[in-house]
Design a binder for these strands. Structure first.
Length: 646
RNA sequence: GCCGUUGUAGCUCAGGGGUAGAGCACUUCCUUGGUAAGGAAGAGGUCACGGGUUCAAUUCCCGUCAACGGCUCCA
């Protein structure tokens, strides 16, 4: 007998060689029907594999990420089987699970595979799934593995096997299909109840552009048909929220081929929104002791030689600007830090001056690859909500903590309740990769982790993800429909203070090198606005939205009264406009709803006579008639409640 | 940068070797209205750009640019 410890701490005595699936069956048939794989001593394995010794056991279902991955991994094999049925002779490369579904890289030879072919493959997958073919694991010798794929004529698998050690090679088979695979897999194909091919795209074999381009087929499967339907609805919802679409519809920003790709043009409404965000953050930063600075959009090439960026990024950047003066060169600034370092150096600094927090909404230019540009999330000219905190090593922890406070305040006010912090530390196996003393690194790494815990952040630690110049902390938010985005970032930097020879006089009257902390809660205004648009589906919070109130006269006879209402609201700091068009009120309401204006005020004979407005809330409808001042106060109360979030 | 797809009116899109069409938006007129689309008329296009084939190209071919879906990249 062996002892298995379950996640709740309870134990079960079972015969040696019992499978996880059998354990599930002993708990309940229902559970057994849902078990996709199992985590045994922390390793995810087939639920059908015998357990030979005492172990901790977690049964994995669709509710576990690892369970999902197992189903999708098995589905990749199923899709490969279906593809082979339709296209005999295709060569298969790799087929892993991904965050949402899975893909298989396939060499279709001369055959064209396109969206039109998806349906038949899906149909075959489901037919095969219904056969409930078991996934059978088999350990094979390297020689046998090579023999198998040589027979099959699949050079990609042979190349993969080449990199594997004899004795560690396993095959998995289901139905008539056998694949080289480490596993794990679900017990049988019957668990797959719904399948959808999503997309095809080119991808290089092993991600190397010197290699052959394969066809990557993206797909997703589910253990229930209804889950697929929910997922398709989510995709549809994501399409509706796409900031590129909403940005155009709501008149926020645009691009012009003539201006240049990746260079956004902020339209009046988008500018209004952005400036309001800027003011919001400026105000919060002022309260936290930041000093606002402004630096030029260009800097001499020498500045970037000092910073080291010329050497590293120079040839992939917008090229230097030359001047009538022979040999003089300037660069569009790709970041603000070097300028801020020079501000630090404008006067001798004492430890009493630290921390010095220099903030700037700094516009920078980076020559991103053409294929990378994407709406507002990846552009060539953008404005960082940047700041650099110059402090002593001892102050790092406290300063990082203050940045966390600022970010939490922003998330709260802008309604991002679901987020986590990723702490990126050194790769312990490769200490020579990093600049700065061990002692400093250790203090900062420990400080960041401690303060993240103290602030109650949900944290994940990634080793080896730190930049060469210092550890960092990034915030990952989940938006309203569950997608993850990387937002604010905090980075400790030992490198630039060194390169710019920054120093301050300590209490000991000796020169010391400050530490620099880069931080940008939004990342960039462009990217943040994009995420915000998708998060709130274009329905911005009342305090932020460009047009808060639209006044809709019932007929042109009341346009004058409507204008006087608008004027009155503006005196209350409310952004109001009149729809003076010669249209019926139903039409004006419809248009205001589509423009996502939070409040509509209908005015006609009755309101004009009484000096009132008939209010209507977007999405809710008529909320009754009230005096202008009462309405204005109501709106301002609502805004005050939003901004006082702490 | 690489692979694939696309580029027709402000927007969404149809069409197709003989120089263009719909709906919405826009302008004007009729209507002067009460909580998600009133009616009529009008205006609007070098069919992305450059080259080629052709009697003739928006349509076919090549190239460029851009957008989109991926890959690689991201100070």
């Amino acid at each position: 007998m062996i002892t298995l410890t379950l996640p709740d701490g309870s134990t079960r005595e079972v015969a040696k060689g019992t499978t996880s699936l059998q354990v599930a069956q002993s708990i309940s048939e229902g559970l057994a029907r849902n078990v996709l794989s199992a985590e045994v001593n922390g390793e995810v394995i087939d639920a059908t594999r015998p357990i030979e010794a005492d172990a901790t056991l977690k049964l994995l279902t669709w509710n576990d990420d690892s369970g999902k991955s197992t189903l999708w991994h098995s589905s990749a094999h199923l899709m490969a089987e279906a593809l082979e049925a339709h296209y005999p002779g295709i060569k298969l490369a790799i087929g892993p699970p991904i965050e949402n579904g899975f893909y298989y890289d396939v060499d279709f030879g001369d055959v064209e595979f396109s969206q039109a072919d998806f349906a038949k493959v899906e149909k075959t997958m489901l037919e095969l799934a219904r056969q409930k073919s078991e996934y059978i694991r088999k350990e094979v010798s390297k020689a046998d593995a090579i023999h198998f794929f040589r027979e099959k004529g699949d050079q990609y698998k042979l190349e993969l096997i080449d990199g594997l050690e004899d004795g560690q090679i396993t095959f998995y088979s289901q139905g008539n299909f056998t694949d080289l695979c480490r596993g794990p897999h679900i017990p049988n194909t019957g668990f797959i109840k719904a399948a959808k091919l999503l997309n095809v795209a080119g991808a290089y074999w092993r991600g190397d552009e010197k290699n052959k381009m394969l066809t990557r087929v993206y797909a997703i499967t589910f253990p229930k048909q209804s889950e697929l339907e929910d997922y398709l609805k989510l995709l549809e919802e994501a399409r509706k929220r796409d900031h590129r679409k909403l940005g155009k519809e709501l008149g926020l920003f645009a691009f012009s081929q003539k201006v240049g790709s990746g260079l956004p043009l902020w339209l009046p409404k988008g500018t209004d929104l952005r400036m309001r965000l800027t003011a919001f953050l400026t105000d919060a930063q002022k309260k936290m002791g930041y000093l606002q600075v402004i630096t030029p959009h260009i800097g001499s090439k020498e500045l970037y030689e000092t910073s080291g960026h010329w050497e590293k990024y120079g040839k992939d950047s917008f090229q230097p600007i030359s001047t009538p003066q022979e040999g003089e060169m300037y660069m569009l600034k790709p970041m603000n830090c070097p300028h801020h370092c020079e501000i630090f150096k404008t006067e001798p600094r004492s430890y009493r001056d630290l921390p010095l927090r220099l903030a700037e909404f700094g516009t920078v230019y980076r020559y991103e690859q053409t294929g990378e540009l994407h709406g507002l999330t990846r552009v060539r000219g953008f404005t960082q909500d940047d700041a650099h905190i110059f402090c002593t090593v001892d102050q790092v922890k406290e300063e990082v903590g203050k940045v966390i406070d600022l970010v939490l305040y922003i998330f709260k006010t802008l309604d991002f309740p679901d987020f986590l912090a990723q702490v990126s530390l050194r790769d312990p196996g490769n200490p020579s990769k990093y600049i700065g003393s061990d002692a400093n690194w250790e203090a900062a790494e420990r400080g960041i982790q401690e303060v993240a815990t103290e602030k109650g952040l949900k944290t994940v630690v990634e080793y080896g993800e730190a930049a060469f110049y210092g550890p960092k902390l990034d915030f990952m938010v989940r938006d309203a429909i569950g997608r993850r985005w990387q937002l604010g970032t905090v980075q400790v930097d030992y490198n630039l203070p060194e390169r710019f020879e920054l120093e301050y006089t300590g209490a000991d009257n000796q020169k010391h090198r400050p530490v620099m902390i880069h931080r940008a809660p939004f990342g960039s205004m462009e990217r943040f606005v994009a995420i915000l648009i998708e998060h709130c589906a274009g329905q911005f919070p009342l305090w932020l939205t460009p047009e808060q109130v639209k006044i809709l006269p019932v007929s042109e006879k009341y346009n004058d009264y409507a204008q006087s209402v608008a004027k009155s609201l503006i005196s209350y700091d409310i952004r109001a406009l009149v729809d003076e068009r010669n249209e019926k009120v139903g039409k004006k309401i419809r248009d205001a709803e589509l423009e996502k204006v939070p409040y509509m005020l209908i005015v006609g004979e009755e309101e004009q006579g009484a000096g009132t407005v008939s209010a209507r809330k977007k999405g809710e409808g008529d909320i009754g008639s009230l005096a202008i001042a009462d309405f204005a106060n109501k709106v301002n109360e609502e805004i005050k409640a939003m901004l006082s979030a702490q």
